[in-house]
Each structure stands twice: as C-alpha cells, then as structure tokens.
C-alpha cells in the first residue's frame, strides 16, 4: 500500500494546484492577522491569539479544506480516465480497491498537511504580532492533525458525488463550493437546527467537536450556549468513521464501474 500511495503522489508531480493547496493555507491567516492587531480590548495576549487561531481553523480548515480536497479528489479520480491509463492499471496485479484506498490515503495526507500548514501559518503570523502570545503549541498541532483527519473523512461524501458525476473539474469545484457553503450555513444556524441534523452533517459536526475540544483546553470561551451540541471525540470518530466507510465503499463501486466502461 505504501508503494501505491507513493505512486499516487508521483502522479501529482508538476501539478501546480498541489502547491497552491499548500500556499492557500496562508489565505485566511494573513488577513485575519490584521484583526488581531485592531485596537480593541483584549483579555490577554494569549486569549487574543487563541481567538485568532480558532478563526484560522474555522475558516481555513473547515471552509477551505473541503473545497481543496474536492478538487484534489477530482484530480486523483479523473486522472486515469483523462489520461487513458485505466487499461495500463488493469493489467497489473493491483486491484481497483487498492487503487481507491491509495487515493483516499493521499486525500487524508493532503488534509493533514493543509491543516498543519494552517496552524504553522497562524503561529508564524501570530509571532509577528505584538498583541498575541502563542501558547499550547503542542495541543494546537495535535488539534490541527485531528481536524485534518476529521475534515477529510467528512469530505468523503463529497468525493462520492465528484466520482459519481465524473464531470469536468469546473463542475467538481462547484460541488465543493456548494458543500462548503451548505456546511457554513448550517454552522451559522446551530442554535436553530436539531442536534441530530447538526451531527449528521460532517463538517458542522467537526466544527462542534473542535469548539468543544478547544473549550475543554481553555482555547475558546463564551460559547457555553452551544455546549449541549458538542459531541465527544468518541462520538465524532464513530459518526465520521461510519460516513467514511460508506463513502469509500461507494467510491470503490463507482470507480470499478467507471473502469469497466
């Protein structure tokens, strides 16, 4: 499987979009830094950075990452169709399920890299700001890795749609934007939505989990009103695992079907 994953990364060589994904991790941290420096009353410099960090993870990872992953998934899953390499791959002793798993692992790694890059970008920008003090770096890095994994798992239903429609890249991007906007709309309506619905939507579920987790670790405050919605880590992992498992099974089925056409 390691060889397959390495091969999937090699196939992406010279694809400029991958570099763009890494740099886009700076997209939100840079302008958000400006908000940190605004002349406003702050509780402490550490609290100021923590608030900034939660915005970076909220916008950058929870909003932007699903879009990025959707496009990378389109690249990975359309690659064989577009380059007519299905026939080469089908006469080697590797099954399409193995190929699908390798591509999914690449997505997870991209998700983790993006999330970690966002955290690093936040640290970098925070270190240049006088009104911010970076604390709990280890916790924040672990949180970034967890969020990268959870958001990627939560994006797999979107990948199912990308593979199912198997249309152009533009169509895939539209799907990704729709998915992110839908998730963001749900997140802005947490108080009004039933708990079950909030938990069944993977990105809002991850947002709730991360909020609860940050509250537990003293990184976020003033969101006690939503505490009844916070899922535990075990609940989040269980829900996302079921979604990811079903999504991978569907992706595998669709990928096999496309390969036979």
């Amino acid at each position: 499987m390691l060889n397959l994953v390495i091969c999937e990364f090699r196939k992406l060589k010279r694809k400029k979009f991958i570099l763009l994904v890494i740099f886009s991790a700076f997209l939100f941290p840079v302008p958000l830094t400006a908000f940190m420096t605004l002349p406003q009353t702050i509780e402490s410099e550490a609290a100021n950075f923590n608030e900034y960090f939660s915005y970076v993870m909220g916008y950058g990872v929870e909003l932007l990452l699903p879009c990025m992953l959707g496009v990378i998934a389109a690249m990975l899953f359309f690659m064989e169709r577009d380059n007519d390499t299905f026939k080469n791959l089908r006469v080697i002793p590797v099954t399409s399920t193995q190929m699908v798993l390798a591509k999914i692992i690449v997505l997870f790694l991209c998700g983790i890299i993006f999330s970690l890059m966002s955290a690093f970008a936040a640290f970098l920008c925070g270190s240049f700001t006088a009104r911010a003090e970076i604390t709990g770096i280890f916790y924040k890095l672990v949180l970034a890795v967890e969020m990268g994994i959870f958001i990627t798992a939560g994006t797999l239903p979107l990948v199912v749609l990308v593979v199912f429609f198997s249309k152009t890249y533009i169509f895939s991007i539209l799907l990704c934007v729709f998915y992110s906007v839908l998730s963001l709309t749900a997140e802005s309506s947490f108080g009004a939505l039933p708990k079950l619905l909030c938990w069944l939507m993977p990105i809002p579920l991850t947002t709730l989990w991360s909020a609860g987790n940050m509250v537990q670790h003293g990184v976020r405050e003033n969101i006690e009103a939503l505490a009844y919605l916070f899922p535990s880590t075990a609940q989040t992992v269980a829900i996302l695992s079921i979604m990811a498992f079903l999504s991978v099974a569907l992706i595998d089925y669709l990928y096999k079907k496309r390969g036979n056409e």
């Binding site: 060889n3 397959l4 390495i6 091969c7 090699r10 196939k11 060589k13 010279r14 694809k15 690659m79 380059n83 007519d84 390499t85 299905f86 026939k87 080469n88 791959l89 080697i92 002793p93 590797v94």
Partner: peptide, 22 residues
C-alpha cells in the same frame, strides 16, 4: 490501443510508476 500515460511526467517517471506498481 493508444498508449495511456500521465502527461505531466517524463517517460522514465511514467515507467517507474508502473514498475513500482508491478
């Protein structure tokens, strides 16, 4: 039919991928 390879890779890189997969 027509050979199918990844256009963003060189000939050697393409074959190395298939060699690794095999």
């Amino acid at each position: 039919e027509a050979p199918g390879f990844y256009p963003n890779l060189t000939g050697t890189e393409n074959l190395e991928i298939f060699a690794k997969l095999r």
